[in-house]
Every structure is written in structure tokens, then in C-alpha cells.
Amino acid sequence: MPRVAALMLGAGYSRRFGGDKRKALLGNGQSVLGRALENALAAFADVTLVLRGDDDPQALAIPNGVKVLFNPHSAQGMASSLVMGVEHLRQGDADAIAVLLADMPCIQPSTLQALVQHCGPAQIVLPSWQGQRGHPVLFGRHFWPQLLTLSGDLGGREVVRANADCVKVLAVEDAGVCLDLDQAADLAALNPLV
């Protein structure tokens, strides 16, 4: 089984949401971030969360077992958090990184585990639900140097595009891989799955 470290990006500013969406409550009373981390911890032994430089982990109720990195450059875009996380994780022995987003709390742990089974150091693996590509994206160690060159708000999409011949798309029966929380109205779509 490949060793996969989870890297959750949670340093965004929720501008379109109108408040800190990480603290928004789901129908079961859990916060969006809390549920996303719970799902990650159920599937990965190594979970790292990137927060903004001024975030208070206690106020966000970060569970035990999650390593927290503080990104002082989070205003520069998602890539700065991704680069920081990859820099940190490349010191370890993981074969791949699963890049998760903190505003996607409905991905089932069984889906995360299925993705892990299909990845390796020279592969990029991502889920697809009803033909729509989703998250997380698992990047084998071979692609980490390319991730370290990213900037702005692109995330890893450019690395996926540039290495299309190494990408494995896994069809899953999990709508959660395509449901993220951009606006407050999106909470209603998430709640039936929580």
C-alpha cells in the first residue's frame, strides 16, 4: 500500500461566502472544517492542515492528530499554501500527497481510501463522480517539484494538465468529491450528505 500524506488547504478568506466558511455549521452540528478533517483522519495516518498566519487553531477546534502549518503569505493565493505544504511533507517518506480542500466536508473516507489504493510515486489520481472530475487530487512524489513552482490561485490543475499521460481518473459513487462550499447557499446542497 502506498504511503500517502494528506494535505488540507484551509487558508482561504471565504470572500464569496460572506463569513468564515470553515466555521459554518452543517446539519449535524459539525463545522465544515471539523467534518472535512474528521473524514481525512479516518483515511490517512498523516494529516497536515495549512491555515492563515493569523488563525487560531483553538477557535477552529482542530482535532488532535492534525499537524498545523501557518501560511503568512496566504493572501497570495492557494498555491502559496500548497507550496508550503509540499515543502513540509517532502521531508517525510510519503509516496504521494492527497491535496484536500477544507470546504469539501462530504467526501467519504471510503472514497479517500479507494484513491490511495490506486496511486503511486509516478501517478496522479483523482476521483470522478457522474463524469465530473473532483477532489482530492493525489500527486505522486515524482510531481512534487512541479507543485513547488506554482503561484497564484491555480492550485495543482496545471500539473495535472501537463502530465495527462500519468493521470488516473477513478469513477466513484460519492457526490461529495464534487461538492465544495463557495457561497452560503451551498450549505443546503451539502447537508443531505452529512
Rank of each mutant, 00 (worst) to 15 (best):
M1L: 06
P2W: 06
V4L: 14
A6F: 12
M8G: 01
M8P: 00
G10S: 11
G12V: 12
S14T: 12
F17L: 07
G18N: 14
K21H: 12
L25Q: 15
L25A: 09
L25Y: 08
G29T: 05
G29M: 02
G29A: 06
Q30E: 15
S31R: 10
V32M: 00
R35F: 01
R35A: 09
A36W: 12
N39Q: 04
A40E: 06
L41G: 04
D46T: 08
V47L: 02
D55A: 09
D55C: 06
D55Q: 05
D55F: 00
A59N: 07
L60M: 03
L60I: 03
N64Y: 11
G65V: 07
K67Y: 02
K67N: 08
V68N: 03
L69P: 09
F70C: 01
N71K: 05
N71V: 08
H73A: 11
S74N: 08
A75E: 09
Q76H: 11
L82M: 10
V83Q: 02
M84E: 11
M84L: 15
M84P: 13
E87A: 08
L89P: 06
L89E: 00
R90G: 08
Q91V: 13
D93A: 14
A94D: 01
I97D: 00
I97F: 03
V99D: 04
L100N: 02
M104V: 07
I107T: 11
A114W: 03
A114Q: 15
L115I: 09
V116R: 06
Q117G: 03
I124Y: 03
V125H: 09
L126W: 00
S128I: 03
R133V: 04
V137N: 10
L138D: 12
F139Q: 11
F139L: 14
G140Q: 06
G140W: 09
H142W: 08
Q146S: 15
L148D: 13
L150C: 13
L150A: 13
L154C: 11
G155A: 00
G155I: 05
R157A: 07
R157E: 07
R157S: 10
R157T: 08
E158F: 01
V160L: 00
A162N: 15
N163A: 05
V169M: 13
L170E: 11
E173K: 09
E173W: 01
V177E: 01
L179Q: 09
D180V: 04
A184I: 13
A184K: 13
A184T: 10
A185Q: 09
A185I: 05
A185C: 00
A189H: 04
A189K: 09
N191A: 07
L193A: 14
L193P: 05
